[in-house]
Nucleic acid binder design. Structure first.
Lengths: 144, 144
DNA sequence: CTAATTAAGTGGGATAGAGTGGGAAAAGAA
DNA sequence: TTCTTTTCCCACTCTATCCCACTTAATTAG
């Protein structure tokens, strides 16, 4: 379970350090894939395996299922964590999420999301502006 | 298990490099055959053997089974990976999948699919346009 | 409290390997 | 033979990867 928000810089070689609190829960490789709202999802390898298994269970004969399998699997990448705790962001994904220097790591349940700093800021503001909806949800889950 | 999308160029001799992450999981030869949705399926030799066995087990009297057999088996070709990690795409298959310069390799579970860049782009957009089905499935498989 | 030590985050250089193109030898086809 | 296709080899470019070093912050020792 990943929580917290960290900002790190991606260098010219598209390397970024993983926040050290997250690193402790990860093995030597992780899976990156396209998420929703132009962010990247990062899964521990084991968690990804579960997702892949679910997908494999969809019918091969069904054209929609084939499409989803292609869509979700092809956009994923397994990347290894180097000796100094960094990953190399594949350029297709960096482009998709519009990452440049500043990368925000956000822990969300079983996954970590990678956002470009600008997009993250804009998205956060948008969510905060829907304060009453937020309050409603917090109430529903018994947090306040 | 193959994941990821890679674009490589096929030269005038119809040679294409296999993406190096895939190469690690392959022996010196692979099997190419006609796939569904006008792409080429690439299987590791061992996996192909299982598929061929499965197909052989299908009822011979069933017209659909015979059709599928012919479709998948008749144009299957075993090709060897050369010293620099390339394969030579048989021209019948290249023609079938309408490959020209840009070839997209898509890892989908136990197989790798080869697409012409244009067809891949068109197909991806089509899948992406089904946003509600996509969101539904993401939820179902526990990705979000 | 200060000095020494460790770990985290960042940057750069060097090397090995991936991806690509082309030429020449070898094998078939006409 | 002659022409084409395949196979093998070499070479070039670019990028990923490895290794080392610097900085800052946090931790520990004296």
């Amino acid at each position: 379970m990943f929580i917290g928000e960290y900002t790190h810089t991606m260098d010219a070689k598209r390397r970024v350090s993983l926040p050290s609190p997250f690193r402790e829960e990860l093995d030597e490789s992780v899976v990156l894939t396209r998420g929703l709202d132009s962010c990247i999802f990062l899964f521990p390898e084991a968690a990804w395996q579960n997702i892949a298994d679910e997908l494999a269970g969809l019918s091969f004969g069904d054209a929609d299922a084939r499409g989803l399998n292609r869509f979700l699997l092809s956009r994923a990448r397994k990347v290894t964590i180097d000796k100094s705790g960094r990953i190399l962001v594949p350029d297709l994904l960096a482009e998709f999420a519009d990452l440049d220097k500043e990368v925000v790591f956000a822990g969300v349940h079983s996954r970590i999301e990678l956002w470009g700093a600008d997009q993250w800021k804009r998205y956060s503001e948008e969510v905060e502006s829907q304060a009453d909806l937020l309050a409603q949800t917090l109430g529903d889950i018994g947090m306040i």
